[in-house]
Amino acid sequence: MKPSSSTLARENAASLYLQIASLLHEEINRGVYDPSGKLPSEAALCQRFSVSRVTVRLALDKLTEENVVERKQGKGTFVAGKQLRHGLDTLRSFHESLVIQGLKPEMRILSRHIVHTPDNVRNSLGVNMERSLLLERLHVVDGEPIALGRSYLPVEVETLSWEQTEQQPTYAILESLTGLRVVRADIGISAQAADKPLADSLKITVGMPLLVMRRLSYLSNEDCCDHSVFYIRPQHYEFVMSSYFKPVLK
């Protein structure tokens, strides 16, 4: 969607910021600033409306007071309560689900090392997989941590460089190594309180509730190739899916 082409009534200079606030609010309601929720910079708004930076700041201050937007130091102004959405009815990696919303997420490796596969994970990945690669990555959007992912992957992933495992989504990594596509995943959603390591990584307080997504992914040959758990800050994140009525056959 495009911003409104409405012009400002300039007879009363004191009301200019109110008009700008009203126009921006209307555009927010129309979804103009989807999918990232980030508004134009103050400089861009000054140019658009041909007003001073003071007038623009007064308009943004009014929207902030009304909880319509939130201003993040050094990052800009964003629609308040903007929800990142993860569709459960289409198979995508966590990283890809953010990219398709027009965002520019980062993945930062916290740790990457070979471990003895825990029994509960081994039962999923296969009894012969005594060792696996534990990959921990922090998912970041606009400099803010969104989720921490812990993935147990085949040890062959260790042959990839640090940069490759930091920049490529898990499913792309697995396809490049095996030549097979990930075709299905079993996903469970729950919640838990953040312990200190999670709180430190996600920059939240200990005990804060987190969404937890557990995922088992399978290749086209039916081999389980990925056992992942994502710990997600829930303030601006939601899982969605479409459901259809299916009549019960009698």
Rank of each mutant, 00 (worst) to 15 (best):
Ala21Pro: 05
Leu58Pro: 00
Tyr33Met: 01
Ser190Val: 01
Asp119Ser: 12
Arg57Tyr: 08
Arg85Tyr: 04
Leu45Glu: 09
Phe78Arg: 06
Gln167Leu: 08
Val229Met: 10
Gly37Pro: 07
Arg184Ala: 05
His113Trp: 07
Gln101Val: 00
Val206Gly: 03
Ser132Cys: 09
Leu39Arg: 01
Met1Asp: 11
Leu88Ala: 06
Ser190Gln: 08
Lys72Thr: 06
Arg137Val: 01
Leu24Lys: 01
Asn12Lys: 12
Pro234Lys: 06
Glu66Asp: 15
Arg85Asn: 07
Asp119Val: 13
Ile187Thr: 15
Gly76Asp: 04
Ser22Met: 10
His25Leu: 14
Glu166Ser: 13
Ile109Glu: 13
Ala194Gly: 02
Asn120Cys: 07
Thr205His: 14
Arg122Tyr: 12
Leu134Trp: 04
Ile232Gly: 06
Val248Tyr: 03
Phe78Asp: 06
Leu125Asn: 03
Ser220Leu: 02
Ser5Glu: 10
Thr159His: 02
Leu202Glu: 00
Gly188Met: 10
Pro105Leu: 10
Val121Ile: 15
Gln192Asn: 09
Gly188Arg: 14
Ile232His: 01
Arg150Ser: 12
Leu202Ile: 13
Leu138Lys: 06
Leu88Thr: 07
Ala194Asn: 02
Ser190Phe: 07
His113Asn: 14
Asp223Phe: 05
Ser111Tyr: 00
Ala44Val: 10
Ser201Lys: 10
His113Thr: 06
Tyr231Thr: 03
Val155Arg: 09
Met241Glu: 13
Lys246Cys: 10
Val56Ile: 15
Leu216Asp: 09
Gly143Lys: 03
Asp223Cys: 07
Val115Gln: 08
Gly87Tyr: 09
Gly87Leu: 04
Tyr17Pro: 02
Val115Leu: 12
Arg184Met: 09
Met1Ser: 11
Pro247Lys: 07
Met241Thr: 10
Thr90His: 14
Glu42Ile: 15
Gly207Pro: 04
Leu210Ile: 01
Thr55His: 04
Gly188Glu: 14
Lys104Tyr: 13
Asn221Ala: 04
Arg92Lys: 13
Cys46Ile: 01
His236Ile: 08
Val79Asn: 03
Pro169Ile: 01
Gly76Ser: 03
Arg92Phe: 11
Asp200Ala: 11
Ile114Ala: 00
Gln83Gly: 00
Ser124His: 13
Met213His: 04
Glu130Thr: 10
Ser52Ala: 02
Arg214Cys: 11
Ile187Glu: 09
Val229Lys: 05
Pro118Tyr: 02
Ile100Arg: 13
Ser6Gln: 14
Lys75Gln: 12
Arg215Leu: 00
Ala14Asn: 14
Cys46Val: 12
Ile109Val: 15
